[in-house]
Amino acid sequence: MGNDVLVLAEHRNGRLSDVTFELVGKARELADRGGGRVLAVLLGETSLAHELGVADVVLCSEDPAVATYNAQAYERAMVHVVERQQPRLVLTSTTTVGMDVSTALSVHWPAPLASYVVDVRRDGEDLAVTCRAYGGKLLAEVALTGPRAICAVIAGCFPAADGRSEVAGRSEVAGQVELLDLEGVFDGLGVSVAQVVEPEKGDVDITAADLLVSVGRGIGSRENLEVVQELADALGAPLAASRPLIDQGWLPKARQVGKSGLTVRPKVYLALGISGAPEHLEGMQHAETVIACNTDPKAPIFDVATYGTTVDLFDLTDELVKRVQE
């Protein structure tokens, strides 16, 4: 059994995602301690292989089946690769791609899987893993035993710089690039991609604003949006929201902050009635200053906020509007 650590690289619009570098950096650390190699699997965009110099080997495919993300094709390719490489550990993210692939690998390879991982360490023969659980209210300490394992890691938990070759002091071409032979792997696929729809550009660009007013489930009903919109208007700030409000159709998708929405880095992020689910925190934790208002003093948003208050959000909104309009 090897000590290799294998990473599934993710890319979008011709760029490797930050989480890929985070995973490659972590893989390097784990592989170096265990005397193994770092293998990266890059499907669809072979031209990006040179950016993965921190890996020892980049396994690529330009097969048309993986030209755009196809859940079943990715799954088949990854099962094919891990069965041949037999790594000690596979690292994916917890994005859509990571969820599809990590679960399927766990059944087909097979290997134990830990998801929502925020930390992974070697612990003798085992892996000691910390996972975020119950909406971020608890952490789970998990031991993955046996000769192999899979971890699906939350984006933003490890430094991306460790995986970037220019920073990590590795030559860009250090990694060996190998083309995968996937002959027959995609025969009889039951999934085909009919269309790729890019998100509509919104009327406002929430990623460009210095000040964002962002609302969550705590506002209760759609009618209450007006109150918060009034504050946003008074402050000259765009109104953003967390996932539940977007799913209800209360605000357009272009206003969504978080994992499946946009990542924002304003000078001030005013979070009203947002509890701070991990998926939301991923999109705003790098704001310069976060001011959070939530009636639950234990809401996870207060762990990333700079300033917090548990006063009623409508009382606060009224008071703020009064002061700003003065």
Binding site: P112, A114, R132, A140, V142, L144, D303, A305, T306
Partner: peptide, 22 residues
Amino acid sequence: GTEQFALRRLVAPEAAGHAEML
């Protein structure tokens, strides 16, 4: 084969920081 996934314990996260409450 889920016995290879052993949940040792659940703990409340120790926040790296906490908001200064106004």
